[in-house]
Design a protein around this nucleic acid. Structure first.
Lengths: 138, 138
DNA sequence: TATTGTTATACTCTATAACTATA
DNA sequence: TATAGTTATAGAGTATAACAATA
């Protein structure tokens, strides 16, 4: 019976979307507590080392044109700098000292509020990761 | 060690977001194959029975003002009708025959392409649901 | 007074295309 | 010629506020 299969698949999908939605809201709240938008916060976490703007666009799966404005705002906040790369077309985004300090605080708050580690034990997280890997296998 | 905890939580979060992103893309592709936007497709699936516009906004967690335009487009496509409710302030969105047929086809294609049921066996889906329930518990 | 649906409007996120400077 | 970053712009999706009809 096809309707039943759909209903079951939908049920599971809806729950999955809810979980992700909740995680996004948690992350948003943590970011806001440091006066950052979610996108800015995500960028700080991605900048453990200096990264070419193009690469950042690709790890965030967005168009390169979006990175310009994002970098502008973070630069204006004094959190990052554009530093020239070996190839002079390339600019690397690099955390300032202030940016690094903020990144550390952000990481602490994210870890402290993580729904995943708060609600699931180690064994369950391993189980979840196995399922996700299976879903992501090409 | 805090950095390690963060790294692990982030790793799992990133995978979870990737899975959801892939599911969204799959759904988007199915919707597009029937000339629907993802939002329109989702609405059709939500309209198994006639639903007040206000209720639809709440199940889609969006503002009520957005439902007007959504309903306009689906009505122009001949897929739904606005029917008056007992309370004459209320309008119910109700599938037309054409809308019902399209909803059926949509459901088939969603079920056929579901990453969740294609890649996970019954036991694994049960396992996943248990984990999601735990993450969603209030 | 409060609520439903509507309208006008604005803000965010994202993508496309044309431009510049390098390669 | 191809690529990195920039700029201008346009399209979704979503939210707020004011309004008419109804409760």
């Amino acid at each position: 019976m096809n309707a039943a299969r759909l209903a079951e698949a939908r049920d599971l999908s809806v729950k999955l979307f809810h979980v992700v939605r909740r995680m996004e809201q948690d992350f948003e709240a943590v970011a806001a507590s440091l006066n950052l938008t979610p996108l800015q916060a995500r960028t700080l976490l991605d900048l453990e080392q200096p990264v070419p703007m193009r690469d950042l666009a690709s790890t965030m799966s967005c168009d390169a044109s979006n990175v310009t404005g994002l970098a502008d705002r973070l630069e204006r906040l004094g959190l990052i700098e554009r530093v020239p790369g070996a190839d002079r077309r390339v600019k690397l985004l690099s955390l300032t000292d202030e940016g690094m300090a903020l990144r550390g605080e952000l990481a602490n708050r994210v870890a402290a509020r993580s729904t995943l580690s708060a609600r699931l034990g180690k064994a369950e997280r391993v189980q979840l990761e196995a399922l996700l890997d299976k879903l992501l296998a090409t």
